[in-house]
Nucleic acid binder design. Structure first.
Lengths: 226, 226, 226, 226
DNA sequence: TATGAATGAGCCTTCATTCAT
DNA sequence: AATGAATGAAGGCTCATTCAT
C-alpha cells in the first residue's frame, strides 16, 4: 500500500500556527502516515488513538500536541484527499462522440482510479463517517456536489443528448466511485478491464454505442471475483 | 406464524428456540422497529442499546432476552433486508433491445428503488459496518456478488454485446445502488427522473442508445439538488 | 464526623427525573455520603471520582448513573448546605442592647457553629472552588450576600449605632465564618469559649461593651491551640 | 544582590545554589511575575505551567531550570508573602483605649489591607492550597499562629479586658483577613470605609465603644456592594 | 542558558452487558 | 416475561515533568 505522504502538505499544522522545526515535521508526518494506515485498516470508529500512536511509535501526549483529537487528524487527511480528487475531476477534457473523446474519457477514469487507489484507506474510512451529524457529512456532500457540477457542465457543452445532464453526471459519478470502492475493498478486481467497462458505459450513456467506440480488447478471462 | 412485518420474518427468535407468546412477540416487534429507527437515525456505531430500548419503551434486560447483543439485532434486520433485495434482483425479466426491454428494465429499477427507500435506515447503517472485522462485511459482499451474478446471467442471455458481462453488471449495480443511496441521504432528489436516468444509462450501456429507447418525457425542471 | 445525610433530601435526583426505587435511593445516599467524606478529606480538586466510588463501594458506572459528573455531585451537596445555612442565618432574632439580646446572639452563633461543623467537609472544599470561573463562585457570593443582607437589616432595625450596617454585617459574618473555618481545620479549638468570644465581639461592636453584656465565665485554661 | 522586587527576595535561587548572571535573573523575574499573574487569575490548581511560561515568554525547559516544580514556584511566592505579612503584623503599636490607640489600630489595619491587596493573587491561590496533604497547609497555619500570638501579646499588655486574649486575637485576625479577602475577590468594595469598620469593631471589642473612639466621618454613600 | 519536543501516568466518562428482583 | 440497577473494561484527553539540541 503506497503511502500518501505527498498530500501531507497542509496537514497537521497545529491551530496556533506554531512553526515546526524539522523534528516536529517528522513527527507530524509519522502521525499522518500512521493515521492513514490505521483508519484504513480499522475504519474510523474502530481506530483508536492508541493504535495510531503505537504505529507512529510516539506517545499520546505527542499526538495531542499536533492534533486536537481524532477527528482533527481525520479531517486533515480527508480535506487533502478531497482537494486532490477535485483537481482530478476538474482535469476532464472535452467530451466528443469520437475516438478522441473516448480515449480522453478512459484516461480520465484511469487517473481517478489511480488516485482512488492511492487514498483508499482514507476514503474507506470516510464512507463510515458520512452519517455523523458532524460536518464530515457536509464535506462528503460538497465533494460529491462538486464532482457532479463539473461533470455536468462538460456534458452540457458536449453534443451528448441526455434528458438531465445533472442526473446523468450523478449516475456516472456514482458508478465510477462505487466501482472503485468495490475494487478497493477487494469485492472486485480493479484494473484495466474495469476501467474499460466504466469508459464504455459512460461513453454509451452519453453518445450511444456509436462509431467512436473502440475498446481495448479484453481477454474474457478477466472477470469479477466472487 | 404470520409475518410480523416485512422485516421481522425470521428475526427475534430467541436462541433457545422457545416459542413466543403474544406478549413476547409484541416486545420483539417493538425492539425491531426501534432498531430500524435508531440505526437509521444515528448509524450503527452511534446507536446505543439504550436508545433502542428507550424508543421501544422497554428495558435493557428485555433487550438481551431476545437478542444476544447489538450485533445480533442488526444482523437480524440486515439478513431480512438482504433476502428481500435478492428477491427483487431476481425478479428481473429478459433484457431485449426494444421498448419492452426498456420498460421491463425501468420497472425493475423502480422496484429496487422502492425497496431501497423502504429499508434505507438499515442499508445506511450497513455501509458503516462493512469495514469491520466482523462477518458483516461478508454479508454485504455476498449480497453484492449475488446481485452481480444474477444480472450478469441475464445479460449473457440477452443480445447485448459487452466485453465483460460480469463487469458490466457490477458497474450497473454499483450505479444503481449508489444513486439510491444518494437519494436516501438526501444528496440528490430521488424520484421518477432519477429512475429514468438510471434506466436510460443501463439500457444504453447494453444496447447503445438505439431504437427501442423510448424515454418518459422528463420536464427539464426536475434536477439534481446541489 | 457526623454524616450529613439529613440534607440529602433533594440531591442526586438524576436530571431525567427518573423515579428511584429503594435500591437506587440507597446507592445515591452512599454516593452522597462518600462525596462528603472524600471532598472533605482531599478537597475538591484532589478528590477523584475513583475515590468516591471506592468509599461508596460501588462502581464508576453507577456514579454516572446518578450524577452527571464530579461537579454535579458537589453542586448538589453545596446547594443543600447553602440552603440550610441561609435558614440558620435567617433565624436571628431581634438585636437588643440588653442581656436578652446578648443571649439571642450567642444562641444564634452556636447554631451557626453547629451547622458549620456538621457540614465542615463540604464547606472546606467549597472555599477551594470559589475561584473557578464556573458558577460555583457565584453560589458562594450569593450566599455571602444573603447572609450580609439579612444581618444588616437586623442591625438597621436595632438601636445599634454603626456608621455602615452593611459593612458591619459583612465584617461580623467574615469573622464568624472564618473562625468556624479555623475551628474546622483544627487551627483553633472550637467550642463554647470561641462562641463566647464571637458573641462578645459582635455585641460590643454593635452596642459597645455596655450594660447588657453578661458573659458566661470562661475558665482561663481554654485557649487557642498553636 | 539588590532586591529584585518585593516578592522576589529569596526566591528563584536554583537548587544547586549556582550564582545567577544577569540574564538568569531576568528570567527568574519573568517567571515569578508570571506566576503571580497566573496563580492569581486561575488559582493554584487551574494554573498550568504552560500558562506561566507563556506569560513569561519562556519555555518549559527554562521553568524547570529555576524551579523544581510548580509547587516550588508557589512556595517561593508564598514564603515571601508570609514573611512580609508577619512584619506588618509585628508592626502593631501599643493598644490604648484612647484616640491615639484607635488611630494606631486604624493605621495598622490600613497597612495590612494595602499589603493584602498587593499580594492578593498569591493569597487567593493560597486558600485553595491549604487543604492539600502537602506542607502548604502548615505554612498557612504557622502564619496564622504567628499573627494571633503577636496580636494576643499586645492585647495582654493593653488595658483591654477580654476573657481570652488568644481567642479575641484570633477572631480579630479572622475578621480582618476575611474582609480583605472579600474585598480582593470583589465581593465587597474595599477602601477607607471598610477599614473604618474594621477599626471600629476591633476597638469596640477591646475597649467597648467608649470615649476614645473618634471615627473618620463616613459619607453614607459608601456602602458595601451587593 | 534556553528551548521545542516528547513523554506517560492518571483522570474522567461511556456503554455493552449482566444481575437480582 | 420484564425491569431497573449495577458493573467495569476501555477509550479520549491533560499536563507536570524530562530530554535532546
Amino acid at each position: 500500500m503506497p503511502k500518501a505522504s505527498p498530500t501531507a502538505s497542509r496537514v497537521g499544522t497545529p491551530a496556533e500556527g506554531r512553526e515546526l522545526r524539522a523534528r516536529g515535521q517528522r513527527t507530524v508526518r509519522k502521525l499522518i502516515d500512521a493515521g492513514i494506515e490505521v483508519f484504513g485498516a480499522k475504519g474510523y470508529h474502530a481506530a483508536r488513538v492508541d493504535d495510531i500512536v503505537k504505529v507512529a511509535k510516539t506517545s499520546h501526549g505527542t499526538f495531542y500536541l499536533y492534533f486536537a483529537n481524532k477527528d482533527d487528524l481525520f479531517r486533515a487527511l480527508a480535506l487533502d484527499v478531497a482537494q486532490e480528487m477535485m483537481q482530478v475531476v476538474d482535469s476532464i477534457g472535452s467530451l466528443t462522440p469520437d475516438a478522441a473523446g473516448y480515449d480522453m474519457l478512459r484516461e480520465w477514469l484511469a487517473r481517478f482510479a489511480e488516485l482512488h487507489g492511492r487514498y483508499a484507506p482514507v476514503i474507506r474510512a470516510w464512507t463510515e463517517v458520512e452519517i455523523d451529524t458532524s460536518d464530515f457529512g457536509r464535506l462528503g456532500t460538497d465533494l460529491l456536489g462538486g464532482f457532479v457540477a463539473r461533470l455536468a457542465s462538460r456534458i452540457e457543452k458536449s453534443p451528448a443528448v441526455v434528458p438531465d445532464p445533472q442526473l446523468a453526471a450523478l449516475a456516472i459519478i456514482a458508478m465510477v466511485e462505487r466501482c472503485n470502492y468495490y475494487a478497493m475493498t477487494g469485492q472486485v478486481e480493479g484494473g484495466e478491464s474495469l476501467i474499460d467497462t466504466l469508459a464504455a458505459i459512460t461513453f454509451a450513456s452519453l453518445f450511444g454505442s456509436a462509431s467512436g467506440r473502440k475498446m481495448t480488447p479484453v481477454s474474457g478471462s478477466r472477470r469479477a471475483r466472487r
